[in-house]
Design a protein around this nucleic acid. Structure first.
Lengths: 247, 247
DNA sequence: GTACTTTGCGTAATAATTACACAATTAAAC
DNA sequence: GTTTAATTGTGTAATTATTACGCAAAGTAC
């Protein structure tokens, strides 16, 4: 941003002072952050929502968000919200985009920046901080408050794309996981059924899984081997990911 | 956004009135839009920049941007900037993401939302509206003002990805183009050399090109056939695009 | 120990991608 | 108008990636 209006309507570069004046007078747009927090539990992809108590959106669910503080980075704002809501730090967090229709919020002009986050539900289960919060199956999410349905849809699509290009999905799993759990995760996120043998073949071909030499416990059938993701090797390898079967 | 602080630091849903108060008092963050305007000329991918006359960034180039007005949608703001700068409407425009580090702008707290746009330089050439504006080869773009280098890099990466998944690139070409021009475009955007026969094969296999029954004029060699992109067919086909050779 | 469930594993068929060369067309130079 | 130079237009074989698919062994539940 570095422009001002010339008489003919075409802006040109301008001085710091002129910009400062503009910046200070531009006080009628508020900025917020909204987070789509994904979790994976019981082989379902879940999203954490809060019940809206605004009259306008009685009984509707909404995303978790807050106004951005003047002295905090945008990303820091998203981390703050996540910390407050889940008690967790060091989460997978990715900005998606801004949503800025004039009338998107009944309280006035509020532009919001959407993020999504992936959390390990095992960790979170211990810290339920607010009983207005509930996990919802992603398939059953509909009719959210404000423009949150659109935001959610956009973030969910982004996640689907992301896990096919990056090893983001592992953030939703326990540190140790079986290949079956990993496949269930991909099937839940992408909404497809994948061939078991081809799925295993593909992951082993990538060679980013470390065999922990342990097996599942408390499963009512033959237990599978447990693995963890080799982030180190992934970083070193120049982040070349082999795509997962189609969406 | 729909939260307030409880005494224990964990926010919960709140009333419209409470939010309005917050929104109105949150007057210390300004919001801008910055546009990365791409063009394609002489087989090079170009970007339109303006010379910054801010002291802090003397002699540096910067993206085209402006503050968002309280009564305009975010997208409308980007279209306004493009219209002012290029004289063109109906441009290809895509939001990329927001950039919101606290100290990214010397004039105060300004969060900016980045867009990129693809324009047909043939159209634009007729309307040079401001002599502070210049087209730059994307390869030579470095050391931009503010955090504009980071914004530019992010937008350029996004474009590279985009043209491999959507028929966005055609917005950079004249309405009628030869396959050679199309290939030059992809090579310029992706920064790779592609095999001519395989490139042609791939595009013909997609079957979205309409042979106009015309040939190039004023080329110092055998002229190629001219084509246009069949957007209609593309829409009807459920937007299935066949990926272009790797990056 | 029998029934049940799930793991772990390999191959053949099909589809997609890559590498690669030569004749025909046009404009430009002479 | 003949030659030169540049570029178009076209096909196939080799390689690689993807898909479809079944059975023996391991462990749990009873």
């Amino acid at each position: 941003m570095s422009v001002k209006q010339k008489p003919d309507g075409i802006p040109t570069a301008k001085s710091l002072k002129a910009i400062q004046t503009e910046v200070e007078s531009s006080n009628r747009i508020a900025l917020s952050v909204d987070c789509v927090i994904f979790g994976f539990d019981e082989n379902k992809l879940k999203v954490l929502l809060i019940r809206s108590d605004m009259k306008t959106y009685q009984d509707k669910w909404s995303l978790l968000g807050d106004l951005v503080r003047p002295d905090e980075d945008l990303d820091a704002s998203a981390y703050r919200i996540l910390k407050q809501r889940t008690g967790l730090s060091d989460l997978y967090l990715e900005q998606v985009q801004a949503f800025g229709k004039v009338n998107r919020h009944p309280a006035g002009r509020v532009v919001t920046v959407a993020y999504y986050s992936l959390i390990n539900v095992q960790h979170h289960k211990l810290k339920i901080l607010d009983n207005e919060l509930h996990w919802h199956d992603v398939d059953s999410v509909k009719d959210l408050a404000f423009d949150h349905q659109e935001i959610f849809n956009t973030c969910y699509s982004r996640l689907q794309k992301r896990v096919q290009e990056h090893p983001a999905g592992f953030s939703l799993l326990p540190n140790k996981f079986s290949l079956r759990e990993l496949q269930n995760l991909y099937e839940a996120i992408l909404g497809v059924k994948l061939d078991r043998r081809n799925f295993r073949k593909k992951f082993f071909a990538m060679d980013f899984l470390i065999d922990l030499g342990e097996i599942e416990v408390n499963v009512p059938h033959r237990p599978g081997k447990l693995y963890k993701f080799n982030y180190n090797k992934y970083e070193k390898r120049g982040k070349k990911w082999v795509g997962i079967d189609f969406l």
